[in-house]
Design a protein around this nucleic acid. Sequence first.
DNA 1: GTTGTTGCAAAGAATTTGCAACATA
DNA 2: TATGTTGCAAATTCTTTGCAACAAC
Lengths: 133, 133
Amino acid sequence: LLEQAGIRPTAPRLAILTGLSGRRAAVTAQELHHELRGGTRPAGLATVYRTLRALADAGVVDVFQRGAEEAFRLCGAGHHHHLVCEGCGTVEEVDAAEIEQWVARTARHRRFRVTSHHAEINGLCADCSPVKG
Amino acid sequence: LLEQAGIRPTAPRLAILTGLSGRRAAVTAQELHHELRGGTRPAGLATVYRTLRALADAGVVDVFQRGAEEAFRLCGAGHHHHLVCEGCGTVEEVDAAEIEQWVARTARHRRFRVTSHHAEINGLCADCSPVKG
DNA sequence: GTTGTTGCAAAGAATTTGCAACATA
DNA sequence: TATGTTGCAAATTCTTTGCAACAAC
């Protein structure tokens, strides 16, 4: 996974990738750094920042804006959008096909040349929603 | 416009609002501050930050994430989405109706309780696109 | 007169960068 | 061994806050 992204697999990087995997919510560089701090394979804060950025550039992780800071999360290949739970932070991916039609149509009407688009739904996931009746 | 947002109309605030009006691209607090600096009614940087935040809270301006900093722009009422030109920075508003159907449908499938959603298209506007043929 | 606002400068917070020691191919 | 990587600490950048002077109602 690292090699295919052209990123040399070192101990700190593997630790970061491990910290990222199996996680449903996005994490901040700072958070990840703190987590790894206690473990057997710590990684310096700068390294965490550098690695996450590299992974983002390689398309291995998605980047989310969480207030003033950015959070990262391993993501599937291909274009997708997100449902972000404000309760537990979990992120679910959604296929982008339908949105893409809207994007294409809207762009055509405005003679706009699209380079990228982005859609996000915020709210509460099934687990975090108050149960009703 | 300020009064209806519960914001007391002072000279600096009017200057900020004037600086904002008639502008097609979003501006940063820093940029606006620099612009007003030279004019007849300057506004302190902190005041620009405070006022823009107040206007955003009041729904008078939209907030855009431009790299690490945020940019602001007067916006229409009601829910809408954006086409952001990467060439000149111009922002066009698009009605949100179609996206809302997708949001509602997607949320229903996932049993997700929506509190907000966001969609943005990036690319080049008609004026910035290289002319073809 | 009371309460909200301003501007400055200091504080805060997230992220980036310089650089010498170190690990990888 | 040549090149990429690490970690630390310092530097940068955007934004917020404390506070005394000031303006609006």
